[in-house]
Design a protein around this nucleic acid. Structure first.
Lengths: 209, 209
DNA sequence: CCGGTACAGTACTTGTGGTACAGTTCGCAG
DNA sequence: CTGCGAACTGTACCACAAGTACTGTACCGG
């Protein structure tokens, strides 16, 4: 809210272009999204578009960077919230997962789609640096979740033999897969339910039944 | 193998066109895949292409149908194999998951991508009937896995309160998400590992630690 | 009042999907 | 051996959309 005011007119237009483009890309793919339709919806000319982005790949890069930054902020905020509610690493992580599931369930029209997943399924369209960004995004998430699981495992020895990297990856898997299922079955409630399945797994592994 | 011999020359070409198209679609998206490049790689003319497919949407539909049929057959085969190795519904399902993970791990270059997931992220490009096919595909898989879980739950009461539809969906989630992670991180071993995480969850829920 | 921001206008090239239709090769049924 | 249909090739064409390039201009703050 207060952030919007700080943006200059140019930055506002740029954000708006990315909003429109992201929505289109998540529904039609990157190649299926034309610059013409973006500028038509934004009420701007093609020249205006190319003032903000060198080319289409530049738009893709800027969109992805923004998406990754946003996701990062959301996770940071939820982790912080959870940490304030419990000192215990396991309880905090379980609270985090609940908050995450709730947030995903509260999206009015369901999750619009993961831009990273979308890019992965069209990676040949993008330059190397954009492709590296999707890879690094997933690596960062793995590390971030893994840290939490390490702290949990210290205090709560796992009931079964389990690789914590795989377990960390599973949250990304379940989220990406849950989004796909939600979209495909037109049921926004699937994503939060899938996150809660993961939560149940974590609970079983570290706390037992 | 023996199946190939049965195909007429036209059917072989049609299959070849779909092979090429599917590979391209999984890497560049549907809109990013041009008919021209498909026919160039197939060594055929545009007329030849339109002899086999009415238009591009017809190709999309045929590809998806073939993909769904194949997946169905693979699962049927693995289920049958597992059933032969154990009469017990839980053990059979766990064997199935192990076989499934092994199969995904044995793919030489990793899983090429799930066509259904790819379509879901570009569903506005397709006609309604194609979109319905992705929905029905996921519904069928849910039902299919749910049946197994029902039979398991009869004999092994779940250790925790769990919704079996969600648990059935989780296999699709983890598979779709695992494929994305494998592609993004350029590590084919992630997908089988994710399936085994799901297997561990099922085991914990019904058999305990 | 000057200069940069933030665009608008115009012109052009290439690619792509799709249509149309006439011709050709080849295996195989009769 | 022949004719017929399957499985294409060749050629020509169209509308239109993406993307590039460059020039022009309104507006706003210092």
């Amino acid at each position: 809210m207060a952030n919007v005011q700080v943006l200059s007119k140019g930055e506002q237009t740029r954000e708006r272009l990315m909003d429109i483009a992201q929505d289109a890309v998540l529904n039609k793919g990157f190649a299926g999204t034309s610059i013409d339709e973006i500028i038509a919806e934004a009420g701007i000319t093609k020249s205006g578009f190319f003032y903000h982005f060198r080319d289409k790949n530049d738009l893709a890069k800027a969109m992805l960077q923004r998406y990754l930054d946003n996701e990062w902020k959301v996770f940071e905020q939820l982790f912080q919230q959870a940490d304030e509610l419990s000192e215990d690493p396991l309880h905090s992580f379980l609270i985090f997962l609940k908050l995450f599931a709730d947030m995903m369930g509260d999206l009015p029209n369901g999750h619009p789609g993961c831009l990273v997943a979308s890019y992965v399924y069209q990676d040949f369209l993008f330059s190397r640096d954009v492709r590296n960004m999707t890879t690094e995004g997933h690596q960062i998430w793995r590390t971030r979740f893994r840290e939490r699981l390490d702290r949990i495992a210290e205090r709560y020895p796992a009931k079964i033999d389990v690789n914590l990297d795989d377990m960390a990856d599973m949250l990304s898997s379940v989220a990406d897969g849950g989004i796909i299922l939600s979209k495909s079955l037109h049921d926004p409630s699937i994503l939060p339910k899938q996150i809660l399945q993961y939560r149940a797994y974590v609970k079983l592994v570290f706390a037992g039944a």
